[in-house]
């Protein structure tokens, strides 16, 4: 998982932002309990979103309590705790995905990275075994998707075929979140485009790096002289995927977290597209500009 699916915090209410954080921290805690402290580092925004979908669909009322962060004991945190499947499900996905990602790194990276991945693998293997035992179907589905991915990339096909494995995997994972037939149908479509969006976003984000290292990227064929022209094309592909994603999402019946999930779908996606495709290229410059702008505003207020 890559961490592109996150809410745009400037559009959230403070109460919603705190709720989101409490789910994030709750998932982190739940993973630490189930699979050991090391797996807490594997937590991503994407898995948090999956947990929110899982809990939001069931509508189980999860209570929030206060505690302290393990990594930063000075910081006080609020933890969302839930007895339902949501956290355990998302935690298992995170562990399994990380394990396969390490596998990937070992097989196609340079010496330094490979050695690092090998040593991490030693620790992760035990956690993976635990997750595999709890959710054998997920482990199997992820393993198959990885094999399918390699096959799709080796045949050098277009963007649709390259994103299909990730999309199908997310489609299957989302579908398993509900028992209701109608919801299942919607979740299947929603998951497909979530996976597709994540994959394409990652491909577009890594394009320059992949060109430099001469590794596979589905957008290489579309590469034009001007990088911003290529990014505009990637943005079009992402827009269409996001539009389809929204069509499916609008039909979904959610019992809780609707505001936050709305935010991810309506604002988060577009913000990430803007940020990764257009702003990052000039990030240093724009950050300075932002800084100047804020300084100007602050001074202006003081004077008046």
């Amino acid at each position: 998982m890559f961490g592109y699916l996150r809410p745009e915090s400037s559009e959230l209410k403070v109460r919603e932002y705190e709720l989101y954080k409490s789910v994030y921290c709750g998932l982190c805690k739940s993973m630490g309990r189930d699979y050991g402290i090391i797996t807490r580092f594997t937590l991503s925004y994407d898995c948090t979103l999956l947990a929110m979908f899982a809990i939001g669909l069931k509508g189980e009322c999860s209570h929030v309590r206060d505690g302290r962060c393990v990594f930063n004991p000075v910081k006080k945190c609020r933890f969302c705790s839930s007895e339902g499947e949501g956290f355990r499900f998302a935690g298992a996905i995170s562990v399994i995905m990380t394990y396969y990602k390490l596998h990937d790194t070992i097989s196609d990276s340079g010496f330094f990275k490979r050695t690092l991945a090998r040593s991490l693998m030693g620790i992760m293997k035990h956690c993976y075994k635990k997750a595999e035992k709890a959710y054998p179907e997920i482990a199997k589905a992820v393993g198959e998707a990885m094999a399918y991915q390699q096959q799709a990339e080796s045949s050098d096909s277009g963007i649709d075929a390259a994103s299909d494995p990730t999309a199908k995997l997310l489609s299957w994972l989302c579908e398993s979140l509900s028992e209701d037939e109608r919801q299942k149908k919607i979740l299947q479509r929603l998951g497909y485009f979530l996976g597709r969006w994540i994959y394409i976003m990652d491909a577009a984000d890594d394009l320059e790096k992949d060109v430099k290292h001469n590794s596979f990227n589905p957008f290489r064929k579309e590469l034009k002289d001007d990088i911003s022209e290529t990014m505009r094309y990637c943005n079009e592909v992402l827009n269409m995927t996001a539009a389809q994603l929204m069509l499916a999402y609008d039909l979904l019946d959610l019992n809780s977290y609707k505001e936050i999930l709305d935010n991810v779908v309506y604002y988060g996606l577009s913000f990430q597209q803007k940020h990764c495709l257009f702003d990052k290229k000039t990030s240093k410059k724009s950050r300075k500009k932002d800084k100047d702008h804020y300084a100007y505003l602050a001074n202006g207020e003081k004077r008046s």
Binding site: R232, N235, E236, V237, L238, N239, M240, T241, A242, A243, Q244, L245, M246, V265, Y266, L269, S270, F271, Q273, K274, L277, F278
Partner: peptide
């Protein structure tokens, strides 16, 4: 309809509007 989706009017980022 598809061209409208690609332009980012429905969802996504409309790069020209900025």
């Amino acid at each position: 309809r598809i061209q409208q989706q690609r332009s980012g009017v429905q969802n996504g980022y409309n790069s020209s509007s900025s």
